[in-house]
Design a protein around this nucleic acid. Structure first.
Lengths: 247, 247
DNA sequence: CGGCCTGTTGAGTCGAGTCAAGCGCCGTGG
DNA sequence: CCACGGCGCTTGACTCGACTCAACAGGCCG
């Protein structure tokens, strides 16, 4: 299987063959496996290594003193877990696996060498960082001014776009390992309300969820329902995504 | 007046005299002035320059198709407006002035030279970037799982901490140019509800706002009310902040 | 079989939004 | 000098979106 990081970065920049090869070798060092629902790095821990998700889903969350939980972001295959976090002394949130996950661990030194030798990779990684921030802003917007059903619809659109970028969708469907409880924590709602809002979207024939798979029969319609605007993902090579046979 | 960027970065790292001098000269090039409530760079524009806020407040916002507005972040003196945004083709949100503002404009080339010559500055800038992301995550949490009065209290705590870091507080008070409408857009509430929640906080003797100044008689109490945890700001040099006379 | 997790449903409550009106301050202009 | 208008703040009454509590159904697994 293609390296998902290469797939991801190619959405932004054309990478030379040497750069791709370098990414391959640098991300094939130490590989870790986690089961579902394990903390990978916790709030308060000191980060010391850069992680790349190879397969599986993870998520970041934060918990208030009194137990209220907020899911902050999803980490999908090809996502880096904050390259350069080691600049900070400790994590301010927790990264946890949602499904079983395999991670590549990259040392800061190796990473630094990679970016020095390949400026186009360095730039693509900046793109990755900026898209992460933009996504976080979009989540803020989502919580701040969308209604329940719109929030869920927006989340589904984002997931679909991101998975499609790394070749993990099939036709109009994609994996959906999030339970209704997870969806509730990600969108700032209760499970009961998530349940009812999902029914609403189903009744409008915008989504179906069966056996942990999400199907979106009409993506454009779901986008309208969600007031979704993909510009925050800064995908410049749409349409060139699948033309990578010439590698 | 001291360069606010120097003050800000020193919260994280000790900078050498040469590094400080370099920051001074590089951020004293082209200076721009804006009045209150002017767009500095709009959604869809191509960023081409790095901006540093010298004085005044600005904010980022996003607007949905149907007009709903979300304030995403505040930019206070010492804040950089996304160094490296020029990696992206277009802005996905708008940066606008809240009060009259003076900005330093720095070219990407000058910025690049600065980071190459001063690794400690490069690292401090990475810290700045990561704190920005962490702050955005905290805003997501704020919208997702705090009640109205808590949200406002949290916002006030953050503003106070950030302003104190660049020496813009006096005793227990700081400027507060945000109107109730602005607070509403920043916290995902209506102005009516902001008004009532502010009254609540006032009645609990946690804040007073008079003539665009916020006073926090007991910061620790406000933090408890807000479930505020400053760790996301990653301020490591607290207590050393004001001991910079030996420069 | 029984327990647990996930999803579903109903009834009642409550936090927050909507609509509408009125107040006070301030700058402008007649 | 004062009338006017605009903006920001405040208040009341009503509505509605979302939460709480509680019970139950289905599927999976030990």
């Amino acid at each position: 299987m293609e390296n998902p990081l290469v797939a991801k970065l190619q959405q932004f920049a054309r990478l030379s063959c040497e750069s791709k090869a370098a990414l391959h070798t640098h991300t094939n060092g130490r590989v870790c496996h986690y089961g579902a629902h394990e903390d990978i790095i916790s709030e308060g821990d000191r980060p010391y290594v850069i992680r790349l998700i190879l397969t599986g889903w993870a998520y970041r969350y934060k918990q208030l003193n009194d137990g209220r939980r907020q899911i902050l972001a999803l980490s999908l295959p090809g996502d880096l877990c904050d390259h350069n976090v080691f600049v900070l002394r400790e994590m301010d949130h927790t990264l946890s696996s949602l499904t079983p996950v395999t991670l590549a661990e990259i040392t800061p030194a190796a990473f630094h060498a990679l970016t020095l030798a390949h400026p186009c990779i360095a730039q693509a990684l900046w793109w990755e960082t900026l898209v992460n921030v933009a996504t976080q802003r979009e989540w803020t917007t989502n919580m701040g001014c969308r209604y329940a059903a719109e929030r869920l619809a927006h989340l589904f659109c984002e997931i679909f776009y991101r998975l499609r970028g790394v070749g993990l969708t099939e036709e109009a469907s994609c994996p959906m390992p999030l339970t209704q409880t997870d969806l509730a924590d990600a969108t700032g709602m209760t499970t009961v309300h998530v349940n009812r809002s999902l029914q609403e979207l189903r009744a409008e024939r915008l989504i179906t969820i069966k056996q942990r798979r999400l199907t979106i029969p009409d993506l454009a319609a779901l986008e309208r329902r969600a007031l979704f605007n993909p510009s925050y993902l800064h995908l410049y090579h749409i349409g060139q995504r699948r033309d990578t046979k010439g590698d």
